[in-house]
Simulated scan of single mutants.
Amino acid sequence: MTQTEIAIKMVLDRWIGSILNFNKHLNELSDEQLQREIATGKNRGIYLLGHLIAVHDDMLILLGIGEKLFPELNEPFIKEADRVAPQIPSASELRVMWVKHNEMLQEKFEKVTADEWFAKHTAVSEEDFLKEPHRNKLNIIITRTSHLQYHTGQLVLLK
């Protein structure tokens, strides 16, 4: 295994570990518990779950590996704050979307080559990428893993 392949494996292993950790905590919560606020006046657990699905859906575009699976989640979970959208999917519907999305992402990640991981993502121009080659697809996984871990820490507060 080359140094590049080791680096990619390290990043993807951390992504998978973070998904599994989030799943563990999510599965310990009831749908009713997901309706509670993380802290007074803050987002509810159900909003965090929808938000993560929507953010991970954006990764498909950023990585150039597909179209959004759940584009209808963008408005209520990225553009809007919690409780602003008149209607959102139920906790049980979001749980199913979460599992489906993670399975699909995993399948797509397994097909990305080492060279592709170090290619530019779709939100960076060719000109900027020449100056900042770290703005690559693998870096998207790193930032989204940190984002996921942050929200996992919030979700734990619902217990």
Rank of each mutant, 00 (worst) to 15 (best):
E5G: 05
E116Q: 14
G50C: 10
R144L: 12
K108V: 07
M59H: 08
Q33A: 14
I88A: 08
V96Y: 01
D58F: 10
V124E: 08
P76S: 06
A85M: 02
G153T: 08
S92G: 00
E103N: 11
D115T: 12
K137H: 06
H56Y: 08
H147M: 04
D82M: 01
H151Q: 07
W15K: 03
F77K: 02
N23S: 06
E132R: 13
K68L: 12
L60V: 00
W117I: 03
I65G: 01
E107Y: 01
N102C: 04
R44S: 14
L52V: 02
I8L: 10
F22Y: 15
G66A: 01
H25N: 15
N21E: 13
L63G: 01
V96N: 13
A7L: 14
A119H: 08
G50T: 06
A119L: 10
I53M: 04
K100I: 06
K9A: 11
K24W: 03
N74W: 10
H56C: 02
N136I: 03
D82Y: 00
I142K: 10
Q149M: 09
G41K: 04
G45F: 03
R44A: 13
L49G: 05
E5V: 09
A114C: 09
I8G: 07
G41V: 04
K159N: 15
I88Y: 04
T122W: 02
T40C: 07
H151M: 06
G17V: 00
Q87N: 11
L29H: 07
Q106I: 06
M1E: 12
T113C: 12
Q33N: 06
T40S: 14
M10E: 13
S90F: 04
H101N: 10
V156A: 02
W98I: 01
E107V: 11
I65F: 00
Y47M: 04
E93L: 06
M1K: 10
I61G: 08
V11T: 14
Q3I: 13
T152Y: 09
M59C: 07
T40P: 12
I46Y: 07
E116W: 03
L52W: 00
I53S: 05
Q87I: 05
T145L: 05
V11W: 02
E116K: 14
I8W: 05
L63S: 01
Q149P: 00
D115P: 07
F109H: 08
G66H: 00
D31A: 14
L48Q: 12
T143H: 12
L52T: 01
M104L: 14
A54H: 06
G41W: 03
E110H: 07
T143F: 11
G41Y: 03
D115G: 15
K68C: 11
K159C: 10
F70A: 04
D115Q: 15
E37S: 11
N23A: 01
N102G: 08
L29F: 05
